[in-house]
């Protein structure tokens, strides 16, 4: 910013006019900077923050899980983020004495239904890619402390395509963390739905990983519009 008087004249309007421009820039910069930190101004986007979690009946969930003795539905909650995201947590039974809840989380991202909605979208509630090696490590350390964690080499497949997962084991128990992003709106997703993110965490007694993944393998989504399954596509 040219604040130094130029051309040897000690008296110059430079500083003044320079300031007006600087002023505008710094006001804008301040606004951008401050909305992202603690030192913010009040922003007018309350509708963009997540609502608190509220309890829902399992019947209201957009998912059906296969019956399971070890992993029954204990509770279900949902919340909205803006008009775009609906998130669900399905807490499942935990037959182990390990800390942490077994659960399936589902984030449904719909397309905004108005121009305004398109302009003021809330920040995405899940990252893409869902995990990096670093974030995965941090997550497993938090979810499965003091257990031996292994990232599965090969993806598995459920009704909605391939998914990845890690396993964690101690002497007695095994745990899995699986994640999946469904974005194939060309073939699988209805046009109103932009993406569905699934994440599944389960710990059980023993070492039968497949049994622990069974609910995830067998789940089916029950959104208002039909999500076609990966198998359906073969017949089309």
């Amino acid at each position: 910013m040219p604040e130094t008087p130029i051309s040897g004249s000690p008296i110059s309007g430079t500083a003044r006019i320079g300031r007006r421009r600087a002023a505008l820039l710094s006001v804008l910069a301040a606004t951008t900077l401050l909305t992202s930190g603690c030192a913010g101004w009040v922003r007018d986007n309350l509708t963009q923050s997540p609502t608190p979690w509220r309890r829902v009946q399992p019947a209201a969930l957009p998912v059906t899980l296969p019956d399971s003795r070890d992993f029954p539905i204990v509770a279900a909650r949902m919340r909205d983020t803006g008009a775009v995201y609906k998130s669900y947590i399905v807490v499942l039974g935990n037959p182990t004495v390990l800390p942490g809840e077994n659960r399936l989380t589902i984030d449904v991202q719909t397309l905004p239904d108005s121009l305004f909605g398109a302009l003021v979208q809330p920040p995405r509630v899940f990252p893409v890619p869902l995990y990096t090696m670093e974030t995965l490590l941090a997550t497993t350390k938090r979810e499965f402390p003091e257990m031996t964690v292994k990232v599965a080499d090969a993806a598995r497949r459920n009704r909605y395509g391939d998914y990845d997962y890690v396993t964690a084991q101690d002497g007695v128990n095994s745990c899995v963390l699986a994640w999946q992003l469904i974005t194939d709106h060309k073939r699988m997703l209805p046009e109103r739905i932009e993406a569905v993110r699934l994440e599944y965490r389960a710990c059980g007694v023993g070492s039968n990983i497949r049994a622990m993944l069974a609910p995830f393998d067998g789940l089916s989504l029950t959104l208002p519009e039909t999500v076609l399954e990966a198998q359906d596509l073969g017949g089309m």
């Binding site: 309007g13 500083a15 003044r16 300031r19 600087a22 002023a23 710094s26 006001v27 910069a29 301040a30």
Partner: peptide, 24 residues
């Protein structure tokens, strides 16, 4: 040169500008 006016009617010296009396 530049001041603030908040909703309560309090005035201040604006941030983001040189805090001065001067050319303006």
């Amino acid at each position: 040169d530049w001041m603030t006016l908040d909703a309560a009617g309090t005035v201040g010296i604006a941030d983001g500008f040189k805090k001065q009396y001067g050319y303006d």
